[in-house]
Design a protein around this nucleic acid. Structure first.
Lengths: 225, 225
DNA sequence: GTGAAACCATGACAATTATCATATTTTTGT
DNA sequence: ACAAAAATATGATAATTGTCATGGTTTCAC
């Protein structure tokens, strides 16, 4: 149960602009939770009683399609808030949040956040800016989904994982995604992912070891049309 | 040059929560513009000096892909603000706005909006709620792009146009989209749109007259998988 | 009104992606 | 360590979608 005032993660998030009093208040009512890999933080349709500030770990936000498949909409990382949108518009969650590795999150009750939003203009402007950025990214995602091939979308997500989540000591991507996860990010069949990764291997773009992936030719992945 | 205080369109928008003083100030500095069908309001990459409040007409927001195609991200209608995101995060426009029919818009300078956002908490919370809703819709669009067939996406947009923009006296869709526009909304080739519309005609789902489209079987368009 | 330009339509074919079947490998629980 | 379960891999084939070519229609400026 750390002190929010000192928390480095908070300083990365929209909560960074909160003042002493507000932070003390959050410190007093927040609840720290550990979430294991594969566990669900909240589900599409849940009414959220607060937001989650991610301290460590990575989480996927998915939406269930009519065919019963999951589609990943966004990967979320330390320093981002989960569930803020549902709290702001007071609706049930639009997406399901599932941990991709072990996570630590701080749960902050809804009324605490709403109170700060209404009182502290700098804070609501800060949340507004984050949301504007999220919206911009979502728009880009729409265009990519609509216009890029499965092959290119898969190359893109590999590069994205490399750039945003880094590599381990032997240069393999850190985030452990299954072929199924890749499929639901790219929006394609699992077999298509497997086939395309095999193709990438043949072309010397990547190499794999079990489910781990290492980039061999960054530039060509990026330049792929 | 109407008076914003009385403006019904403003009352539909996020500007509805502004108070007397603020509205008078906007009334004094806003500029009303007429934009003809096909004209560009602003272009991807432009630095916007304000936001546009749409009084009448419909406009498409597009993004240019690497292949040089336009992808429609959103259709925007009376009562919505254009360019708010760019103004809030102080970046160049991410999308191009083009009039689909003759439009009337009110241009409100950036500093006016920013000043109100920083001073009036109710206003920034109102904008925040709108943006949260936009984000939710964008997420749904990502899932639809990823998971639905061209055939279903085309059916969806026809239903959307019917529900949101209505029909004329002979039941044809009011918004005049070309096959090209449909293609860049659905994210497919123009020929695929034409073919699929022909298919819909054969199946008795729609009928056409020139470029105008009329829905004959709403339910089946909706139930299509 | 008329000719040019833009738009719509369809065929033929190629490329991409999905689906189903069936091995093989890796991971996991005990 | 070992069996069961899950995940990965690959082939065969079908369905969807894209591309190129070509011709007919509508729209619009003059």
């Amino acid at each position: 149960m750390g002190d929010c005032e000192q928390c480095m993660v908070r300083k990365l998030s929209a909560l960074n602009v909160l003042k002493g009093e507000e932070i003390k208040s959050i410190s007093g009512c927040k609840v720290t939770k550990r979430i294991k890999k594969g566990e669900v933080v909240f589900k599409e349709g849940d009414m959220l009683n607060g937001v989650y500030c991610i301290s460590s770990g990575v989480c996927k936000l998915t939406k269930l399609t009519e065919k019963g498949k999951d589609q990943v909409v966004k990967l979320v990382i330390k320093g981002e808030l989960l569930g803020q949108r549902s709290v702001i518009i007071n609706q049930t969650a639009n997406l399901t949040a599932t941990a991709l590795n072990d996570m630590e999150v701080c749960f902050i009750p809804k009324q605490e956040i709403l109170q700060d939003l209404l009182k502290n203009n700098e804070f609501s402007f800060s949340v507004l800016k984050r949301m504007a950025t999220d919206l911009k990214e979502a728009e880009i995602a729409i265009v990519n989904m609509a216009q890029k091939s499965v092959r290119k979308r898969l190359a893109d997500i590999i590069l994205y994982l490399h750039n945003n989540f880094g590599v381990d000591e032997s240069n393999y991507l850190k985030v452990p995604l299954s072929r199924d996860d890749f499929a639901s990010i790219v929006g394609t069949a699992t077999e298509s992912v497997i086939r395309t990764l095999s193709q990438f291997k043949k072309e010397g773009l990547i190499k794999t070891s079990g489910k781990k992936i290492q980039i061999l030719n960054y530039d060509e992945l990026e330049l792929m049309e």
